[in-house]
Design a protein around this nucleic acid. Sequence first.
DNA 1: GTCTATATTTGGATAGAC
DNA 2: GTCTATCCAAATATAGAC
Lengths: 201, 201
Amino acid sequence: MLDDVRPDVPVRTPTSRVRKRHEATRAEILAAAWSLVRAHGLAALTLRDVAREVGMRAPSLYSYFPSKNAIYDAMYVQGCREFVEYYEQIPVTDDALTDLRAGMHAFVRFCTDDPARYQLLFQRTLPGFEPTPDSFSWAVRGLDLLRRRLSVHGYDEDVLDLLTAIGTGLADQQISNDPGGDRWIRLIDDAMTMFHNHVSR
Amino acid sequence: MLDDVRPDVPVRTPTSRVRKRHEATRAEILAAAWSLVRAHGLAALTLRDVAREVGMRAPSLYSYFPSKNAIYDAMYVQGCREFVEYYEQIPVTDDALTDLRAGMHAFVRFCTDDPARYQLLFQRTLPGFEPTPDSFSWAVRGLDLLRRRLSVHGYDEDVLDLLTAIGTGLADQQISNDPGGDRWIRLIDDAMTMFHNHVSR
DNA sequence: GTCTATATTTGGATAGAC
DNA sequence: GTCTATCCAAATATAGAC
């Protein structure tokens, strides 16, 4: 084939420039989708709205995502990556209680910062959606990070399960019953004291 | 008017017999709706499906409920009443830890027994629905009962908030990450020991 | 009260021109 | 890649006969 004369840039492979533009538009679409779900709820997202937000018509989105669920799926991966980034920037000390408190504050803040994201990642009540196995592996990665952070101080499985329950409970109550406030956030330090005393018995 | 000749049973007022039949059909419709949401998810409920389940056509449901959300609303009230019934049958002892454990087991069991009901009552992620003020008062009633049960042993507000966080967290993790199992259920007694030791400091 | 028929809306997805 | 036009399906709700 003639194409093989220039194997580095074969016909049909978009140039790096074109690919970058494509990726940029994809990112713009996702940003618009996030903006909409934050404003109107996760389940209220429609392709028409997303398209209008980025100055397109709905069918044009199909050049970037094969379906609506593919958009949700990409948002899911983004959320997982944000979670990992959130956690990696928390310093680890040699004091278990300090780390527990910092970790729990980070977790609850991550959840309350964006309830729509919380619903997508952790509640999974979206009608027809579930993440692809590939995307779900990102969630596993985030959870692993969380567990590794905590197992540094020697906690076992059951104790980690108790801790995740306290975490989701605090975040859930804060979001459901005092959105924008701090009624459960201000219980975090005390809750971690309780937890720490218990597991150090 | 001639109707006034028999003021006990005026025209246009259905007889007790007719009213009872009407109520029975309403109950049948609600039972069908519960059955469907348990099988296919809370958000997947459609009037056609409900009607088919009770041997009707969709428009006939409008003789019993003015809208789909009115059905959700009636289910919401039913769920709240079931919650109250669940709690009223729990014996109160003079031992705080015993009551904490029994109360928390009851709460988590109530949630895990019917995840669709849990979602309707506590998560409130249903697209266009929110309970009418009248129905919501039933939820307040349930929460009041819960608080009264616990305040018997002298807990203050912040402590109750911590306890509700632990409760929703345990229920949420059990439903989301181990449906049908007992991975978080078996942590309840230990969690209540932790809580009790902490607040009795 | 129940039905058939239908209005209305909505929204995901596709075809094909440019 | 983007558009217009359209399809298709689902689902709530209403009108009016019986």
